[in-house]
Design a protein around this nucleic acid. Sequence first.
RNA 1: GCCCCCAUAGCUCAACGGAUAGAGCACAGGUUUGCGGAACCUGAGAUAGAGGUUCAACUCCUCUUGGGGGCACCA
Length: 511
Amino acid sequence: MNTTRDKIREIAIESGIKNIGYIDNRPSFGDYAIIIKPSKEKIENLAEKIKSNKKAKQIFEKIETAPPVFINLYLKEEYLQNRIKDILKEKEITKKQKEKKKIQIEFISANPTGLLTLGNGRGAFTGDVLANILSRSGHKVQREFYINDAKNSKQIKTLGETALNKGTTYLTPYLKEKIKKTKIKTEDPGEAGYLLSKEIIKDIKKNTEKEFKIKFDNWFSEQDNIIQKNKHKKVYQKLKKYIYKKEKAEWLKTSKYGAEKDFVLVRDTGEPTYFLPDIAYHYNKFKERKFDKVIDIWGADHHGYIKRMKAAMEMLGIKKERLDIIIMQLVRLVKDGKEIKMSKRKGEYILLTDLIKEVGIDVARFFFLMHSNTRHMDFDLKLAKEKSQKNPVYYVQYAYARINSILKNAKNTKNKTKTLSKLTHKAELDLIKELIKLPEIIEDTANDYQVQRLPQYSQSLATAFHKFYDQCKVLDKKREKQDARLTLINATQLILENTLEIMGISQPKKM
RNA sequence: GCCCCCAUAGCUCAACGGAUAGAGCACAGGUUUGCGGAACCUGAGAUAGAGGUUCAACUCCUCUUGGGGGCACCA
């Protein structure tokens, strides 16, 4: 769907304005504003240029200037009314970008040593929604879960030792049960851990799809796809000219490509560190699976790892800009105002599935999405439960249910776009102004990955509808007005549905 | 010690260097014999501190204070 912002940019360019800064879709004055980069030319002159543009005359009611940089634009009623038609032509609202890319987004990728915890929730829902946004931007998107199940890794060995009763480091009630049910015939901890992790992954997969409503396209096993196939050894060869020996270990000269220091690739025991297979994994994404862009979502505890990985990519001839790493700040668990250190070892953590049992998937999703990823989150389950009763997600869903209820009462709900000129009430026009923003929201979010924009938008959309509902009766005696309003709420329902779908939140017809 | 993130209303969160810093909850008051009151309206209330850059700073820079994370031959 074309955006109003695109049209304004087009008009501005046609009018010969060269210093367009950006186009604001939520300005303090007017409906849209062009922000001009400061130049010698007077802003009034620029506004005059726009005013004399033919297309501008069709779209803008009023054009005002606010020096030094603002040109404020007011949309015509007729333009807004006609935009309803554009909306109703679509089923799925998209905002296709010019360049279509093959993108992989890898998220959660939790260790296969236990079920997903509260902390995994942030990255999980952000990743899922981001994938939705990117596919609606016209890209080919793959969701991937990376399974760190290498037999020679410490965590898998430890898991194996636990299973073989040689240690109890990871023993949780869930694990106890799992070990009982899994038949392990080997005495090798690595092998045992690997087998057990396969079983655990099955549970994670089930939870992820059924409870968290996230469907991965690919579950990628490190052991099966990297280690087994010696991909790490192959990538080692490719990196050879950047590797040197020091104190019996082998180091990668990452400091040459922007990292703060060099890192060990192969231990003095001859065993590779985690770093090597991880480089091989990323090499595989770009060079073997041919993704144009790869997005990784990591927890804040991995932030020191970013420069290292990007440095390694540069060494392999992969431009670091092709790898975007989103850092989710950690979630802290709080109880009675005090922090509880989440530790799988001590069993002090909350499972994501427990949270969802308490508050429901819609609230959980909305809650995690609302927060910007750069901020720390304190999580209090008790408070979350209380809050869930008053969660804004219900406010948004209520708008959807309300529309549904009106449509049920109406005798004929077919769209009659010829009557749209009857929509002149302020509340009606304000609602349309919100409706036309969804493709802009999609576009912005595809560019900066700030998914909290969506819950934000869904609320203002619902507010615009509730206000309209309060001020304008849809089922009216005046035939044409009723038809116009029914058409409007059909469009509103469509936009609400799309917004909720992108967030992965259900659209109840009744509440 | 070095590096990264954060500090906005009583609470939980927004704000692409842009205009009068927005919501929700909580609080005070109001709206209903109209399609679902899980709604609508009104009010009170905030940028941690000090400098600087800019026509313009919550946003960028420096310092201070306070929180979180990292700095492994763990993953």
